[in-house]
Design a binder for these strands. Structure first.
Lengths: 227, 227
DNA sequence: TGCCCCAGGTTGACACCGTCAACCTGACGA
DNA sequence: TCGTCAGGTTGACGGTGTCAACCTGGGGCA
């Protein structure tokens, strides 16, 4: 372990940054929140354990700070999604969300496990809500954008959090599964927003209606669509 | 703390049971997995700490055993769902799942957070898959039942796990939200299973198609359906 | 009847954890 | 030149999971 040169007054923030990086790395390697030790963080930073308390009130606040960075990264990804068609764009946002979660599984896990009430998280939700609002404006979705966003969020979060938490499960191809959930949630929201809580016709008649509607939804006619 | 009478040979299983009950209670009260202490479990059972190791190899195995019981309870609830219409029954199964999760939030959290590969969990999935299969047989859903079940599972799990993990969030009415997610997932699966990965028509045309289809889906005609 | 065995525990200890009070140290302003 | 104070370090405390060693009393067997 290399000798650390003591920081000059005013430069203490540098150590804070190094600690954050070390914690981020350890969290990714260790896997779970409690596997991340203050002692390990301090050792990796090349500093004594209580030094962490110079910059973070306790372990929880350190983890909170790590999470904050993750929210920013997630927002960055969602913001970078582009597509001329609003409904397609909403789908891409969902896939971007899933991509982030699966790329940083541990961070995502920690992120969603603790009650979060910070501006960065709020911003993420607002980005999704804005994409939904565009779909409402285009007429493809109807109803309250916030409510619809919650539904989509639930579906995608459920998808990735299961993939992360149950790696031993015989999942299908990950991209396929994410795609399925994103499309199902989107199409389902479109239908639900028009049906709402109305009692549904029996299954037999539903089948006919779906068959007819989906012939129109598919943009090009496939000759072998049943399987 | 009352004196414990020592168990006779062969009666050791009784203590195992008492420990499980104590752990279950503490988990529900404490909230999180790491708040559940072996010392607390032992104290509540009226026994010394290392006695727990007579019946469970370590803390993890104790928690595993607690989880196993929860899976059984979940299966019991799903099994008790009845409805003549298969699509309606599927929805009720989803609501039963959510009801369990929200009634035992801590157990559910622990349950889903750890990789589970036990028969009880498998049985729960199979029950859901059977309900889906009935819908496929009735024609209201199409495609591979296992895949569809995964999608529904993801949606409902996401819904309840967000409700549990983010109690501070300004959620709408819980029952309403669960209902929304269940219906959205069901309707979405029906549409997705017919559209699959086909490229979709633009949002404008989608809106018209959905409007037309959903007029048929609603069993009775409302005169004020827009809002 | 008396002996011993062993299931069913208990005692005491270990290493590790988060946390904190007390202490050190070197650069900088007066 | 000297005090001050930001930026650390040392050593300790209580709590945790875990384990080796020990106790103990009821039942099988002579």
């Amino acid at each position: 372990m290399a000798k650390r040169v003591r920081a000059n007054p005013g430069e203490g923030v540098r150590l804070r940054e190094e600690i954050l990086v070390a914690a981020e790395g350890l969290l990714a390697e260790a896997g779970t929140e409690e596997a991340l030790t203050l002692r390990a963080v301090a050792a990796r930073t090349g500093v004594s354990t209580p030094s962490v308390y110079m910059h973070f009130a306790n372990k929880d606040e350190l983890i909170e700070a790590v999470c904050l960075r993750s929210w920013d990264e997630l927002a960055r990804r969602i913001r970078s999604v582009e597509d001329p068609d609003p409904f397609q764009r909403l789908g891409r946002c969902g896939r971007a969300y899933a991509g982030f979660a699966l790329e940083y599984p541990t961070q995502y896990r920690v992120l969603m496990m603790r009650p979060t009430d910070n501006p960065a998280a709020h911003a993420c939700f607002e980005l999704m809500a804005a994409a939904v609002r565009d779909c409402v404006d285009a007429g493809v979705l109807r109803g309250h954008p916030g409510r619809i966003t919650l539904g989509l969020w639930a579906a995608i979060h459920g998808c990735v959090s299961l993939l992360i938490a149950q790696p031993g499960f015989p999942w299908p191809d990950v991209d396929d599964f994410v795609d399925q959930v994103v499309r199902t949630a989107g199409l389902g929201s479109a239908v639900y927003s028009r049906v709402h809580k109305a009692p549904l016709v029996p299954s037999g008649k539903l089948a006919q209606t779906f068959d007819a509607a989906c012939r129109t939804i598919r943009s090009d006619v496939e000759h072998t669509s049943d399987q």
